[in-house]
């Protein structure tokens, strides 16, 4: 297992370098001068040139990229052009918030999604199944900002049960976690239902029923574990996505997460910060996929990690 993990991590290196290179090229191709963004509307050409020199932006592009890679390998992602703070610190300051939001919304989503998915599959074509799947479709289709504003209006402004926005207590996380989780729950419910339907038609389930096992034991003891493989893949991918920040939810609920930081970095052409965030995001996806692959081995003994 350890050898497998090390091999996968080594294989990830070219991916991370490739992602960094593409980001670097894109940043240098799109219009927008980082120094102009940094220095504001009254800056004179002399100062512009001096600052550009200080930041190393006058060096050839391959030198700039080489410097970034060399430093990144030593764990140094440089300093933000705009704030002067280390990029690693800025990412690490916002990441815990994003993790909290991601995990709490994933928790909401997994509980609701899997439960609804299983019931829908077991009671296929029942009223519950139709209602759940229509709701799931609506959940996937509804724009997140709309769901968020409606939730704020109803639970924050009218009923006054929960805070409208902010991040100062666990209570503040409930609305954003539920809003973000609902959409996520909807897709998990649909995947769980179809995976479950496939599994409960298998011979071994029929055998389990034939030998007189209780329905509960058939579902939770035999069907659930097998049906979970495709669902885990979806959950893994979605959690990786959530961990890279949820811009709309973070903006509407005033949560200081990685999503808002990414957009801020991009609109300010803060090259080191954008590079750092993209590299970090890529690493999160690589690790997320690795964890999903490892979890297969636990769910299905036929899968061997090689």
């Amino acid at each position: 297992m350890a050898g497998y993990i090390v091999r996968r991590l080594i294989m990830a290196l070219p991916v991370l370098v490739g992602v960094s290179l593409i980001t670097f090229i894109l940043l240098n191709v799109v219009p927008g001068d980082p120094v102009l963004e940094m220095m504001g509307k009254h800056v004179d050409p002399l100062t512009l040139e001096k600052v550009r020199e200080q930041l190393g932006l006058n060096d050839p592009l391959y030198v700039q990229f080489g410097r970034f890679l060399f430093n990144a390998l030593r764990g140094d992602l440089g300093k933000s052009f705009k704030t002067g703070q280390p990029v690693t610190k800025m990412i690490m300051d916002t990441f815990p918030t994003t993790v909290k939001l991601a995990l709490s919304s994933a928790f909401v989503a997994i509980i609701i999604g899997i439960t609804v998915g299983i019931i829908s599959a077991v009671k296929q074509y029942s009223f519950f199944d139709h209602a759940a799947m229509i709701t799931a479709l609506a959940g996937i289709s509804a724009p997140i900002f709309w769901v968020a504003v409606v939730a704020q209006l109803v639970f924050g402004l009218q009923l006054k049960w929960l805070p409208i926005s902010g991040y100062s207590s666990p209570k503040h996380m409930i609305l954003p976690a539920v809003v973000l989780g609902i959409r996520f729950a909807a897709s998990i419910a649909r995947y769980t239902r179809s995976a479950f339907l496939e599994v409960i038609r298998q011979d071994y389930i029929r055998t389990a029923r034939a030998k007189g096992l209780a329905e509960r034991a058939v579902i939770f003891g035999h069907a659930l574990k097998n049906a979970m493989i495709p669902v885990v893949t979806i959950i893994g991918m979605q959690i990786s996505g959530l961990l890279t920040g949820s811009l709309l939810t973070e903006t509407i609920f005033a949560i200081p997460g990685l999503g808002r930081l990414s957009i801020w970095a991009l609109s300010n052409r803060d090259f080191p910060l954008v590079q750092g965030i993209v590299l970090f995001t890529a690493a999160v996806f690589v690790i997320g996929n690795l964890i999903v692959d490892i979890s297969y081995a636990f769910l299905d003994p036929r899968v061997r990690l090689q």
């Binding site: 504003v149 704020q152 209006l153 924050g156 926005s165 902010g166 903006t251 509407i252 609920f253 005033a254």
Partner: peptide
């Protein structure tokens, strides 16, 4: 407070 969304601020 930092409230980036105008609708949220109004609420």
């Amino acid at each position: 407070r930092i409230v980036p969304d105008a609708t949220t601020a109004l609420m």
